[in-house]
Amino acid sequence: MPTLIPSAARAMAVFEVFAREKRELSNSDLARLLQLPETSTSDLLHTLHSLGYLTRTARNRRFYPTGRLLEIVRQIAENDPLGVVAREAVERLAALTNESAYFSVLEGQHVRVVAVQPSREPLRYIVEVGSHAALHASATGKALLGLLPPEEARAMLAKSGMRRLTERTVVDPDKLMAEIAKMRQRGWYDSREEGSDGVYGLAATGWLAGTPAGVALAGPTERVKKNRDAYVAALLEVRDTVLDKE
């Protein structure tokens, strides 16, 4: 049976405290916030400082994290299997359609974008890695809801608030769930100017190592509408390459 290592847990707790407090902290500050004796806190901070994870201010000798942990996390993220698959998927989809392609995962009541390949067209949809899309008003949001049992999807929608973003945003949960059921049957999802005026999105979803994930494209409504059949074919081809349906 694995054993919890208290010293490792305390080291991680130090960074959680700094993230919460957002300021330089003294040994006594950290001892109080960690609920540890000052002697134990001093040893812990000395170790993290010696390893380069903490620095000390010149004037008051308070502690604050360095960028070393961030750099290590960045290097890990670059080789994250999810990130690798996501980048490959959006590069392929953008090459096939020349529309902005993005890969997203379900995060709480939001859709989080983890990879983007922008279109080369002057008029294009712009989305950034790390941004969030509304569950009820984006093609990917609907597609991710379509992966869930209906009662779970409804509960998630209720928590999300279903705010009206454009005149076409569907804010009636019954109507939206009926739309999602129809889209699930055909195998792909869309959002026509429901999240942003003038933007038409297409999405398909599946599972990546047990994580609900989706690949999507978006662009100006008229261009996507004109090329929709070809775009859907490309979308499903990429989806079937990188995601499991079950």
Rank of each mutant, 00 (worst) to 15 (best):
P2S: 07
S160I: 04
G108W: 04
L33N: 08
S42L: 14
L82S: 06
R228T: 00
G198E: 07
V127P: 05
A58H: 05
G187T: 01
A8P: 03
R74C: 13
Q117V: 09
A13N: 12
F15P: 12
D29V: 05
E99Y: 12
R20V: 05
S191V: 02
K245E: 04
S28H: 06
E128T: 11
L96Q: 09
T41W: 01
L235C: 09
N79F: 11
S131F: 03
G108I: 10
Y102E: 03
S42D: 11
S7A: 15
N60W: 06
A153Y: 02
S119I: 02
R61G: 00
L30W: 02
M183Q: 13
E222C: 02
M162E: 07
A155M: 08
E21Q: 15
S138N: 00
E128Y: 11
R120P: 13
P122C: 07
I76C: 13
F103N: 09
T55C: 09
V111P: 00
L96Y: 07
M1N: 09
L48C: 03
V114R: 00
A181Q: 14
R92W: 09
A213H: 04
A89L: 14
Q35K: 12
P173D: 07
V73E: 15
R56Q: 10
E24H: 10
L144F: 00
Q109W: 02
S138F: 00
E91W: 00
S42F: 12
L217Y: 01
T221C: 07
V111L: 02
P6M: 13
